[in-house]
Write a protein that binds this DNA or RNA. Structure first.
Lengths: 204, 204
DNA sequence: CTTGGACTTGTACGGTCGTACTACTTTCGG
DNA sequence: CCGAAAGTAGTACGACCGTACAAGTCCAAG
């Protein structure tokens, strides 16, 4: 269903333009943060006129919500493809911890990145959703999917794979990452150490 | 040292006004979020003219940094006073988990609040610090103090009280709180359950 | 070919923003 | 008591913002 009562952008070209705007918005969210995204910024990034942003989307809120949905979907896609590449049995706490990070952190190009600014967007979604109720369902659905994947990782590691444990893992990753990002430390090693500790506790 | 080379607000009245502005800014950060705070909003809240905000502070960034410092200090004060009221021995995993939350979460009026919007500011500091390097030291120092208090709580609970364990606890609280806030769930019970699980793992 | 609706886009409106500036008042050492 | 410095505050400037709108183009149905 379209964003307004009036049909907008139903043609092939229209859908292309919508998509271009959403991707531009997603990039800006990652680079500059949620609150720094504007109609004009999106239009410039997508190389489209300003008015295109108001033609295809009812409001900036609407655009941002759909952009977040787009982001979450691509994050999930990546996490799923990473999970698919993992072996059926994860031996060793270190290997298990690495697998947890692979599905819990959706960095753009794998773990080679230092995730300087990019990681922030991953967590800004929490804040933004807390403030804007209509984003909550998006985040809740995303987190639920991550829970499921983490349970699968736990299962492959021979650990208890109930929901509580999965949530424990995700919260640990989020908390450790966020702290490292805030303190200007490389977040991935910090999160890896934290998750390794937690995995060690779980396998006692 | 003053915020600029020129001495500003050294008089008694000047210091009062500075403080009023900082407190107004802190309240606005908590209520509306970091990015929604403006010179005009602060001035209105403090019942001072707009120009007072630019007279006492070199820039909005400067004002926000000092406001965050003010907030962190008051959070630490509260956490310290709560820690002081705790018994010397914390018996039981539930009691220990509650103690962890008491020092790790600086809600304004204790745990009676549902921490609807207020909790967000606690975590928005992470995001803002990640984006603005000069805020990192503030957050890092705050977190370090919380680490120390959590180690004391662990000690009173008869659990290993090294830094790693304290960081594990804080990350768990932060991750669980943030998720609950984002999903619109009452965050304190969620965090309590998560910390209880972690404490159970630690005391095995 | 015509015509009506979808699509496109330059432009403009009203608003808020950070900050600078200019007068005015208060304070206080000499 | 006075003059300089500090403090105070009203106002203005340029920039950016979300959004509305009118005038244009395009295209398929009649």
């Amino acid at each position: 269903m379209p964003t307004t009562g009036v049909p907008r952008g139903t043609s092939a070209r229209g859908q292309q333009r919508r998509q271009a705007l959403l991707e531009a918005a997603a990039e800006l969210i990652i680079e500059d943060g949620f609150s720094a995204v504007s109609h004009r910024g999106i239009a410039q990034r997508a190389e489209l006129p300003l008015a295109a942003t108001t033609y295809y989307f009812a409001s900036l809120d609407d655009l941002l919500e759909q952009a977040l949905r787009h982001l979450a979907a691509s994050w999930l896609d990546q996490a799923r493809s990473r999970l698919a590449q993992l072996p059926a049995h994860l031996n060793g706490q270190r290997r298990l911890a690495e697998a947890v990070l692979l599905v819990a952190i959706a960095t753009p190009d794998g773990d080679e990145r230092d995730a300087g600014q990019d990681g922030l967007a991953l967590y800004e979604r929490y804040l933004e959703a807390g403030r804007r109720p209509h984003l909550r369902t998006v985040v809740a659905a995303y987190n639920h999917e991550v829970d499921l994947m983490l349970r699968e990782v736990l299962r492959r590691g021979g650990l208890p794979h109930d929901v509580r444990t999965a949530r424990l893992l995700l919260a640990q990753v989020d908390g450790a990452m966020l702290r490292a990002l805030a303190e200007g430390v490389d977040p991935v090693p910090v999160a890896l150490a934290a998750v390794t500790d937690l995995v060690r506790l779980l396998s006692r």
